[in-house]
Structures are given as C-alpha cells and as structure tokens.
C-alpha cells in the first residue's frame, strides 16, 4: 500500500472517530433531566455490545462449532469471574481445544 494513501487516510479516520467521541462530551455539559433520554443512554452500551457479539462470535472461526464453544465459555466465565482478561482468554482456549477435537 502506498504511504501517500495510508497516512492521509489514517489522519482522516482518526479525526472522524475522535469527533464522534468528543462532540457529545463537549456539547452535553449539563445534566440531562429527561427521564427517557437518561434511560435510553443507560441501555445503549448493553444493546450495542450484545448485537455486536452475537451472532458474530460463532462466525468468527472456521468451524461454527468452535464459535459456539467460544460463546459458551465466554458466557460462563463472564458470569462467574467477571474479569475481561479471563473471559477473552477462555474464549480463545475454547476455540483451540474444540479445534483439536473437531
């Protein structure tokens, strides 16, 4: 890839992604009192992350069964340990192990 294409492109995307994060932080400086908007914002991350996780996780691997194993491992370890590193690693381990079996 040409550097003359990559660098300006990166700069552009860096500026755009920062703006997406920064605009609400800077513009919404007062406490939002509207109960609906407060509730909406409270639920947003959980919906977004759920949608991003499933079904993408089962399709991420070559064998869909390994993906299911990763999902199961992730659900259990997230429920029990609640630790990001343990959960991420368990998902990988599940794919490795089932990959040898299937």
């Amino acid at each position: 890839m040409k550097a003359s294409y990559v660098w300006p492109s990166l700069l552009l995307m860096i500026l755009v992604i920062y703006s997406v994060r920064m605009l609400p932080m800077v513009l919404l400086r007062r406490n939002i009192t509207n109960r609906f908007i407060r509730s909406f914002l409270y639920y947003v991350p959980y919906v977004t992350l759920s949608v991003m996780t499933f079904p993408a996780i089962i399709r991420a691997t070559d064998d869909i069964r390994c993906g299911f194993a990763a999902l199961a491992a992730g659900l259990v370890t997230a429920w029990v340990f609640q630790d990001l590193f343990i959960v991420a690693l368990s998902c990988c381990a599940a794919v490795l192990l089932t990959g040898f079996i299937f």
Partner: peptide, 23 residues
C-alpha cells in the same frame, strides 16, 4: 489455529462487559 482462536477474543471482551451487568 492460533490466529483462529485469537479472532474470538474481541467478543470475549464484549461479553465481559455485558454479562456481569446482566447478572
């Protein structure tokens, strides 16, 4: 097979955020 395994780690991170809250 290592690359394949690493590809799910991203989703593991997401689960680590949502599942404890769901619990």
């Amino acid at each position: 097979f290592i690359v394949d395994a690493l590809s799910v780690s991203l989703y593991g991170m997401f689960l680590a955020v949502i599942i404890p809250a769901a619990r």
